[in-house]
Amino acid sequence: MVSIIFSIMLASVENKVKANTCTEGLGNCQQCDERCKANHGPAAKGGCDPKFQLCTCYYPCGQGPSPPQPKKCYGGAGVCSDKCGPQCCNQNCAQKYNQGTGFCDSIGHTYLCKCQYNC
């Protein structure tokens, strides 16, 4: 009986923690945790997905660099290639998203156009 109550309490606390955790994709896994902490402070934790070699940053919502920055959202605008490189990607993101900026990011052998914009 005690273990059941403890499990329920643990699940309740875990859900509250998850509800207050934000995530941000940071691309490749190089210095994942360091980049995450640089972007969102010492409470942030970067984790690398071994299958896809992608870094995800987990940080407390509402916390980050000072002064507080607007929340950033991410989207996509296709593939980066010889025909559409970083400048083309940036233009596509600016057209697709309000105040959007774009950058080419490699995922394995594929270069994707990623967009960042204020939510």
Results as ranks from 00 to 15, higher is better:
residue 45 K to F: 11
residue 105 D to Q: 04
residue 105 D to G: 03
residue 76 G to V: 05
residue 25 G to N: 09
residue 104 C to V: 12
residue 108 G to V: 12
residue 91 Q to C: 01
residue 20 N to K: 12
residue 34 E to T: 15
residue 59 Y to L: 09
residue 52 F to T: 15
residue 50 P to H: 01
residue 96 K to I: 14
residue 62 G to W: 06
residue 62 G to N: 07
residue 4 I to N: 06
residue 24 E to S: 12
residue 91 Q to N: 05
residue 107 I to R: 00
residue 35 R to E: 10
residue 31 Q to S: 11
residue 60 P to T: 08
residue 105 D to Y: 01
residue 55 C to G: 05
residue 110 T to C: 00
residue 45 K to N: 12
residue 52 F to G: 03
residue 85 G to E: 14
residue 89 C to W: 14
residue 13 V to S: 04
residue 118 N to S: 07
residue 86 P to I: 15
residue 11 A to C: 04
residue 116 Q to V: 12
residue 112 L to S: 00
residue 2 V to N: 01
residue 34 E to K: 09
residue 96 K to S: 13
residue 112 L to Q: 05
residue 69 Q to S: 04
residue 5 I to Y: 01
residue 116 Q to R: 09
residue 108 G to P: 09
residue 61 C to V: 10
residue 78 G to W: 02
residue 95 Q to P: 01
residue 68 P to S: 10
residue 89 C to R: 10
residue 77 A to L: 01
residue 86 P to W: 14
residue 83 K to D: 12
residue 26 L to H: 04
residue 11 A to F: 04
residue 35 R to C: 03
residue 17 V to M: 09
residue 33 D to Q: 03
residue 99 Q to C: 11
residue 76 G to C: 00
residue 31 Q to D: 11
residue 90 N to V: 15
residue 27 G to A: 03
residue 31 Q to H: 10
residue 113 C to Y: 02
residue 19 A to E: 14
residue 101 T to Q: 13
residue 79 V to E: 04
residue 94 A to F: 03
residue 104 C to S: 08
residue 63 Q to H: 08
residue 80 C to V: 07
residue 65 P to D: 12
residue 114 K to P: 01
residue 18 K to M: 10
residue 39 N to F: 12
residue 114 K to G: 00
residue 9 M to Q: 01
residue 106 S to D: 11
residue 7 S to P: 01
residue 46 G to K: 05
residue 27 G to E: 02
residue 15 N to H: 03
residue 75 G to K: 04
residue 85 G to D: 14
residue 77 A to C: 05
residue 102 G to E: 08
residue 15 N to L: 08
residue 41 G to K: 00
residue 33 D to W: 02
residue 79 V to K: 04
residue 50 P to S: 03
residue 68 P to A: 07
residue 108 G to F: 10
residue 115 C to S: 10
residue 81 S to D: 13
residue 103 F to H: 08
residue 52 F to S: 14
residue 72 K to W: 01
residue 97 Y to F: 13
residue 3 S to V: 08
residue 101 T to W: 04
residue 2 V to L: 05
residue 51 K to E: 07
residue 41 G to S: 09
residue 93 C to P: 04
residue 90 N to C: 15
residue 95 Q to T: 10
residue 106 S to E: 11
residue 22 C to P: 11
residue 84 C to E: 07
residue 89 C to V: 15
residue 86 P to R: 15
residue 74 Y to W: 01
residue 79 V to G: 00
residue 57 C to R: 12
residue 110 T to M: 06
residue 51 K to D: 07
residue 24 E to H: 12
residue 81 S to Y: 03
residue 113 C to A: 03
residue 4 I to Q: 11
residue 82 D to I: 08
residue 99 Q to G: 07
residue 41 G to L: 05
residue 78 G to F: 02
residue 103 F to N: 09
residue 57 C to D: 14
residue 27 G to R: 04
residue 1 M to S: 11
residue 51 K to S: 08
residue 85 G to L: 13
residue 117 Y to N: 02
residue 17 V to Q: 08
residue 79 V to Y: 00
